[in-house]
Amino acid sequence: MSELRYEAPASLKAAAALLAKEKGLAKILAGGTDVIVQMETDLIEPELLVDIKKIAVLRKITAEKGGFRIGAAVSGMEMMEHAALCKSWPGVLDGVKLIGSIQVKARATVAGNLCNGSPAADSVPPMITAGAVARIVGPKKTREVPVEEIPLSPGKTNLAKGEIIESFFLPKRPKNSGDAYERFTPRTEMDIAVVGVAINLTLDADGVCTAARVCLGAVAPTVIVSKECAAALVGTKVDQAALDKLAAAASAACRPIDDKRGTIEFRTKVAGVLARRVAVKALERARRIA
């Protein structure tokens, strides 16, 4: 066990520099709800922790271009308490609300949920369907990356050494649109998604779906953005036929594994069930928000 150091820089630049020059394993400490558990259970032995919570810009939710910019160190509870954000992106908040207990959400961040690299992360599918874009700051440059491009495989992301997510941009909610996320777990709370489905859809004045994004969690090594599922909805009034097609497409899109949390067969079937339910919820919200 090598000695573990802790740094809490005041700027993003300093944080990126610390991460870039560290020779051993360096971890970003935001909420800590994954990193601390992994250290406690001997899964990782980092040599440096870079606490980004002292960087003021990362702690804010700000209005931007009719949408929202959410700092990477903003906690789940802070998002849940942001009335305008909750109103605009209820589906994103569906996911955030499911990240552990109240206690966990007091610390946990959406950036951490994403960077932990779990295909079962609850906030990731609705962030993707919302079209969230991450701003990633590195030692040399800053880049803007859609959230769906960040996870590469379980535990792995496309962030390079020294790169830090600074914030997420959630765009302006289009008119007549709604999003929703649901997951399946055996318990009501304190559980990991066996399957998760997020849908964001937009209707025209006649109630016809003009755009849809559908994302499936926990049914493949990374979250799945399913074009087939979206296609099942677009051009329909999200009626029974469309929902049947959506459910079939969701099940067909699954590439799950058998593990302690669920079986291939079960995950495949429930993905369809949830897709249908989530679509109905998103539809209701689209009608209401209109």
């Binding site: 259970t41 055996p186 318990r187 009501t188 709370e189 304190m190 559980d191 990991i192 302690k260 949390r261």
Partner: peptide
């Protein structure tokens, strides 16, 4: 009745050695 069990892998190791995956009822259950 509903959730609690010991899950072993083929390697004979326990896979759910913690409160997260050894699912005891929580208040909302």
């Amino acid at each position: 009745a509903l959730n609690e069990e010991y899950i072993y892998g083929a390697d004979g190791k326990l896979q759910n050695a913690g409160f997260l995956d050894y699912r005891m009822p929580v208040a909302s259950d």
